[in-house]
Write a protein that binds this DNA or RNA. Structure first.
Lengths: 123, 123
DNA sequence: CTAGAACCTGACATCGATGTGAGGGGCAAA
DNA sequence: TTTGCCCCTCACATCGATGTCAGGTTCTAG
């Protein structure tokens, strides 16, 4: 498929897809005239990239973790594994932090409701 | 306390604290000469702001949820409550998404380990 | 009183991901 | 062949939070 279809299927803008390629997150095969062509594999790849972005990783980090054109040797897989573990930990911390934040929001909502009850009584 | 101490205690830069005030997230009392002064309350307030930022809210949204100089009427507390519920839901979705992402990372790490085992056998 | 640290405002710089527009090819249907 | 849509590259613009610098004032320790 061409870039427009990949964009439509993933919900990611054409601009961003080209950017991912520039950052070496995404590969593509080119037709004779230079147009990018993709397969089902790339749909999954783009979804993966989105997932990593949502987890707060930068394109730089994603490229380190899982470069798009990798012939993994033992060394770099070693480094990558460590990197992944590190990011996994960061992510775990972030998750518990968000859960605490959600609780804080719940607390705020309670206070708000309480406050309204008071207002109604008084007014 | 003055702004430098608040910055030191919260780990937020002086620049950012002034920015929060400009965005009406944070209040301050001014001395005769114009210097900002804060209390323990503001330490908590800044921590709250950081928490909301970490949850992905913009300063605009934070100001809507919990303005720093609020005399809450029934109407705006009504709107605020709805807004909070909405952000709470967004946050919940984000959390499950991150958990799925963490699982994806775990999967990648397994693949990596598997791959290294194979490499060792072969090489 | 004075030096140095901390504060003030205002403005411009930065970063990463994305938008947008110009100028120009590629390709399919009428 | 022409029309219209999709694609290409290059480059500049944008956004929010923060950094940084300049030029000036205030506070505090010696």
């Amino acid at each position: 498929m061409r870039i427009g279809e990949l964009a439509a299927r993933t919900g990611v803008s054409v601009r961003s897809l080209r950017y991912y390629e520039e950052q070496e997150l995404l590969s593509s095969t080119r037709s004779a005239s230079g147009q990018r062509h993709y397969t089902e594999y790339h749909v999954e790849r783009v979804e993966f990239i989105q997932r990593m972005y949502a987890a707060g990783l930068s394109s730089r980090t994603i490229a380190e973790l899982l470069p798009c054109g990798d012939a993994p040797s033992e060394e770099n897989s070693d480094a990558a594994l460590e990197r992944m573990a590190q990011e996994r930990d960061r992510l775990s911390e972030h998750i518990v932090d968000l859960i605490r934040t959600r609780e804080a929001l719940d607390g705020l909502m309670d206070i708000n409701r309480e406050h309204r009850k008071t207002l109604r009584k008084a007014g």
